[in-house]
Amino acid sequence: MTAQTFAQARSLIGRWYSIPLLILVWQLTVASGLVESRLLPSPGRVWTALATEVGNGTLIYHASVTVSRALAGFLLAAFVGIPFAAAMGRSVLVRNLFEPIFFIGYPIPKIALFPVFTYIFGIGTPSKIAFTFLECLYPIVVTCYFGFRGVQTRLIWSAQNCGASRSVILRRVILPATMPSIFSGLRVALPVAIIVVVITEMIGDSIGLGYYITIWSTRFTFANVYAAIIVIGICGLALDQALLLLRHSAIYWQREEA
């Protein structure tokens, strides 16, 4: 019994030792004075900044702004992109019309278009949501499109053979068969949404975590910058886990490791 716990503890340490080690090295570097302490504040000071800024609600407010923008753009892209991908997958005309836009546009760095978006939608929330929508649309449409095209024809044939109507085939055959690709598209798009919102907030805004990072770095208070970075990481992790949970309940017949 004790030997087992001992072995478990050892494997736990063996797997996770690098994070405490990194914090230790960080602390030692700061203490030795090798790096300007304003640029690299000690872990303790970052923790204090994190605790105060979360405690007084500032970081929570900015995080809620960033997350709600990211989610709005992401959900919009999902609601538009999935039916669109279905249309592209099932209709030759739609496919021929839109394939070049999505396949040639896919590798183009769309971030360069952001200045144009600020002119059309203004600097605030609408331009961020619209831009996040565009950035998320591409991975969602492209991934789901392959999912819809990859539905095995014999599944549809056998459903037709059993007398299923078109809507039943769509709901009971095509959608379940595409579910895995829909979720893998969503999983690619979700971090993209967060990255894009943070970047655009860094470029120009007065709320949101990206703004928070920019403003505190111009004030040379890097403890707050690191605190905000940690908050962004936690938000990203939480959203990804939520999506995995959703996937787990939606695709109960297929288990895939993360």
């Binding site: 994070i19 990194l22 943070v198 920019t214 910058v225 962004i232």
Partner: peptide, 18 residues
């Protein structure tokens, strides 16, 4: 692994000011 799984969900651009 622990380091990467921790940093992976953070957009790396946030380190830009630093």
């Amino acid at each position: 692994d622990p380091l990467v799984s921790f940093l992976y969900s953070i957009p790396k651009v946030t380190f830009l000011p630093i």
